[in-house]
Write a protein that binds this DNA or RNA. Sequence first.
DNA 1: GCCAACGTTGGC
DNA 2: GCCAACGTTGGC
Length: 155
Amino acid sequence: MAYWLFKTEPDAFSIDDLNSRPDQTEPWDGVRNYQARNFLRDKVAIGDQVFIYHSSCKIVGIAGVAEVVKAGYPDETQFNPESNYYDPKSTRENPRWFRVDVKFVEKFESVLPLSVIKAMPNITEIGLVKKGGRLSIMPVEETEWQQLYTTAKMN
DNA sequence: GCCAACGTTGGC
DNA sequence: GCCAACGTTGGC
């Protein structure tokens, strides 16, 4: 089993939105970054654990946990001219963009803020603190996952 | 295939 | 709203 972090803007879709769905699942669509695409297409597997990260909001940080319930499959929005995520260069024979489905697992009582994550001395590999923190789908090492999870639960 | 220009992300 | 850090595009 692997660990991941998915970003979302809570103004558009938050962990509470995920939790409030009748079946508590959601397709993670609209990712249009090749590095993130490669993870979604090739690496993310059923049962993997996912930190849900809130970005571009008052308190940015890790808000809770989800679990992958469907591995990578073509993102239908790329074929829809009406969609914001439409990509005219993508074909059904050779889809360019992929997505996965996740289900709600838990919401932390308080968000683990990015400022705290950055101040944790052993958290050095996660994409949040590398590459300018701009990747929207990133792997999390198991040792870092454990530390982040424990810290989030203490808050 | 290089690289400048441009667009986007995202923390602050 | 600013701006730094990236990613993408397109001319050559």
